[in-house]
């Protein structure tokens, strides 16, 4: 007999941790959509943001000031990346750009640790991680908060893309770079703005993941958790990142609990990839990804 209460508890835990994956995946989608770059450095940016924030707080900066300072630094980082890495590599094939972001992730990771040290920092953002009971199911308060933040972030993005000029130009560039260029949009400026926004997403993700895991080097490895989410949802869809994150989170936890024992556990590392792969065989561009039109 299946214990439904336990099943629901695992499912909800999975969904909520999936939201955390979505937070990282959104940063990828923003950049992929507008510049066609799979930004492997997103994890490094997450680490950099969280480490900067924590170090500022530990050095006695008030919460709000540290937040603003980190935000400014992330904006600076976004603009610098556009200037030094992306602009010289315009028109190169996607694999070259991907490699460049791999190099970039080395630089950012090492720079973050060189600046702020390699020790593990605790991060307390004032949300207790005590579970509460809702209709007999235990739910983590922290997970719920993270979900709320992710929800707010997506809403803000939706409004931003829909109602601001910058958002409009993002959509135009994502739709057709050449047409956007032809109507006078400044691509470098749009890219710098996108990387800045991705930096802000990295900050939000970094704070939440940092509060969960502690701020340390392994934070940059959440990239590997976000990749199957991206594949599942489609590289160029924010909705896909959310749905993909929820699915991966739920499947991962359910698989670990119900399938894992047959394999001796530890299948979390690849279960998500296998599920994403299976889905891709049916829908090669993910759930919400744009299907490329191919001509000879």
């Amino acid at each position: 007999m299946v214990d439904y209460q336990f099943l629901i508890e695992v499912l909800i835990g999975g969904l909520l941790s999936g939201v955390m994956y979505s937070l990282v995946a959104i940063g990828f989608v923003l950049i992929y959509k507008t510049s066609g770059v799979l930004n492997f450095a997103q994890g490094a940016m997450l680490l950099f943001a969280a480490l900067t924030f924590v170090s500022l707080v530990e050095r006695g900066a008030p919460f709000a000031a540290a937040l603003v300072a980190t935000l400014v630094i992330m904006v600076g980082l976004g603009i610098t990346i556009e200037r030094t890495v992306l602009r010289p590599l315009v028109n190169q094939p996607p694999i070259t750009l991907f490699m460049a972001t791999l190099g970039l992730s080395y630089v950012i990771e090492a720079a973050a640790q060189l600046l702020w040290g390699t020790q593990v920092h605790g991060l307390d953002i004032g949300i207790s991680d005590t579970p509460f009971e809702l209709a007999g199911v235990l739910i983590s308060r922290f997970d719920l908060f993270a979900a709320a933040v992710a929800g707010a972030l997506v809403t803000v993005f939706a409004l931003f893309f829909r109602y601001t000029r910058t958002g409009l130009s993002f959509r135009a560039v994502a739709d057709d770079q050449f047409a956007a260029l032809a109507v006078g949009l400044r691509l470098p400026r749009v890219w710098a703005a996108v990387w800045t926004v991705a930096g802000i997403v990295a900050l939000v993700g970094g704070l939440l993941w940092g509060a969960r895991l502690g701020v340390q080097f392994s934070l940059s490895l959440v990239v590997l958790k976000a990749l199957p989410v991206l594949v599942l949802g489609g590289f160029d869809s924010i909705a896909g990142a959310i749905v993909g994150g929820l699915l991966i989170g739920a499947i991962e936890k359910l698989a670990e609990v119900y399938v894992g024992p047959f394999f001796g556990g530890g299948i979390e590392a690849w279960a998500a990839y296998v599920v994403a792969l299976a889905l891709l065989l049916i829908r090669p561009s993910g759930l919400y990804g744009q299907k490329p039109v191919e001509r000879v």
């Binding site: 991206l230 594949v231 590289f235 792969l277």
Partner: peptide
Amino acid sequence: FYLAVSTLA
């Protein structure tokens, strides 16, 4: 990239 990520499996 869909293929690249799936090779991570």
